[in-house]
Design a protein around this nucleic acid. Structure first.
Length: 463
RNA sequence: GGCGCGAUAGCAAAGCGGUUAUGCACUGGAUUGCAAAUCCAUGUAGGUCGGUUCGACUCCGGCUCGCGCCUCCA
């Protein structure tokens, strides 16, 4: 029985899909004007886990994660780079897909782009105007009239009065209410524009998610997710748009992941304290990042430091070590096993990945104690989290979780050169020439290669 | 100012009204020619002040500190 915390009710609820056996889920994805940073990685990995686990539970999941490829920042960045918008967004989307693939984030069912859905947005805006929930300002912008949607604030737990009290928005004279938000922006010179009943312009940010979610999932679906910062105003505005246009409930369950932090502050572009996924990949393997992210609960804040990633790397290596030399076959875990049941119970409890991972370490200990049978279970349970999917021996030899730069620095010697030196050393050892043996060990050590002698022979790993 | 979240051992991070979370690091032992990996042993954590209770890290309240949203943000 899966339980999920619902932001809308602020409670953990038993998950009940609208259509039995099927789940429709929408997650707000990236605005593609720059590389993804670790905060984005957290969101992407967390919802990837939700996607995987729902499927594991037997649901047929339709997962939509959008790409925002038109907005102020994209226009500004393209202008700064003196390149066409499409060149910028195409490049960033391709970079994002590389990052995602490295992190073993599965592709969603659909990955729509805002610019492909402008006609749908125009239709919805027209409906909102007809329903008198939106109006055209004197400047040609179209605004949503927050005052006319009584439920406004239900997701964020705010009232219009609360919001006005904390107002720090510079008042737009074209708005009837300072809290009204823009649905359609009239064109400005040099900006891309689409024709519309209100003249050429482009969509506001929030409308794309209302339109694309309806297009792929219908006007009422199960789960909508995103980072905590989207709870207000973005998701609040989506509700106002979709429920305003359709006249019925929009989303049953809202999920929001906690922030990734740097020095106890949210990692974000505006604070300029972000680390891109690609940059961290220089120092650590993507799986270390994924494991680090999953070691915290998705709703809790998580601090990023290199030391924490190193901690995660060591821990992950403990797991990989348990798998070395074991006969491994992929497949479904045997859910009848007690460890599998504990694992399943943890994930069913609002995706408690830290507890699920603790089960994995219990299995690793059992394997090391001699219970080799459990290796398959460890492999398969970890697989449901998108972890331990590499060949253990190769994992060790390719840097044991170190990133591109670190692994390269340690490289120096090819695998065959390493094997040759190991063979030389083995001969020395057979002759009980330990001085030579230790010299060769040191040579390899200096090249970042650690040897491990056992009754079955010598294995090695990098750093 | 309004609304909300959090405070767990050296570090990281969960569950739980009374029984070992887990990981990393550290220390001792085992194993090893030496190592590495691994195993065993070792930690009387729960911001602070009160309350409820036979019993609270776990429930309630005050305080302190930190963070987030209220403007673009995953």
């Amino acid at each position: 029985m899966l339980k999920i915390f619902n932001t809308l009710t602020r409670r953990t609820e038993v998950f009940q899909p609208i259509q039995p056996g099927q789940v429709r889920m929408y997650v707000c994805g990236m605005t593609v004007y720059d590389r993804c940073h670790l905060g984005h990685a957290r969101m992407l990995v967390n919802f990837d886990l939700v996607f995987r686990w729902l499927q594991q539970l037997g649901y047929q999941v339709t997962y939509v994660r959008n790409i925002t490829d038109i907005d102020d920042k994209i226009i500004a960045r393209a202008a700064l780079n003196q390149e066409p918008i499409s060149a910028l967004t195409t490049r960033m989307i391709s970079a994002m897909h590389q990052d995602l693939s490295a992190l073993h984030v599965l592709p969603p069912t659909y990955e729509p782009r805002a610019t492909d859905h402008v006609p749908g947005m125009i239709t919805m805006i027209s409906t909102l105007i007809e329903r008198q929930l939106a109006y055209v300002g004197a400047n040609g912008d179209v605004y949503y009239s927050v005052h006319d949607f009584p439920a406004y604030g239900k997701l964020s737990g705010k009232t219009l009065e609360d919001l006005r009290a904390g107002e720090r928005i510079s008042v737009d004279p074209h708005k009837r209410d300072p809290l009204d938000f823009v649905l359609w922006k009239a064109t400005k010179p040099g900006e891309p524009a689409w024709p519309s009943p209100w003249g050429p312009g482009r969509p506001g940010w929030h409308i794309e998610c209302s339109v694309m979610s309806e297009h792929f999932l219908g006007s009422h679906f199960d789960i909508h997710g995103g980072g905590h910062d989207l709870q207000f105003p973005h998701h609040e505005n989506e509700i106002a748009q979709s429920e305003g246009a359709h006249g019925h409930a929009f989303v049953n369950l809202w999920m929001h992941n906690g922030f990734l932090r740097v020095n106890d502050e949210k990692m974000s572009k505006s604070l300029d304290n972000f680390f891109t996924i690609d940059a961290v990949l220089q120092s650590f393997d993507a799986e270390v990042i994924r494991f680090f992210l999953l070691r915290g609960h998705y709703r809790s804040p998580l601090n990023y430091t290199d030391a924490h990633l190193e901690d995660a790397r060591q821990a992950l290596n403990t797991l990989y070590n348990a798998l070395r030399g074991q006969p491994l076959t992929a497949g479904q875990p045997d859910w009848a096993q007690p460890e599998a049941q504990a694992f399943r119970a943890a994930l069913n409890d609002d995706f408690n990945t830290p507890e699920a991972i603790a089960v994995l370490f219990g299995l690793a200990r059992d394997i090391h104690r001699g219970d080799a049978e459990k290796a398959t279970l460890l492999l398969r349970l970890a697989g449901t989290l998108g972890l331990l999917e590499r060949d253990p021996e190769q994992w060790m030899q390719q840097g044991a979780g170190l990133g591109r730069k670190a692994a390269q620095a340690a490289l120096g010697l090819s695998a065959t050169a390493v094997e040759q030196l190991i063979e030389q050393r083995s001969q020395a050892r057979q002759q009980r020439n330990f001085a030579e043996s230790d010299r060769l060990r040191q040579v390899l050590q200096d090249h970042g290669v650690v040897l491990e002698d056992s009754a079955q022979g010598t294995t090695w790993r990098r750093v």
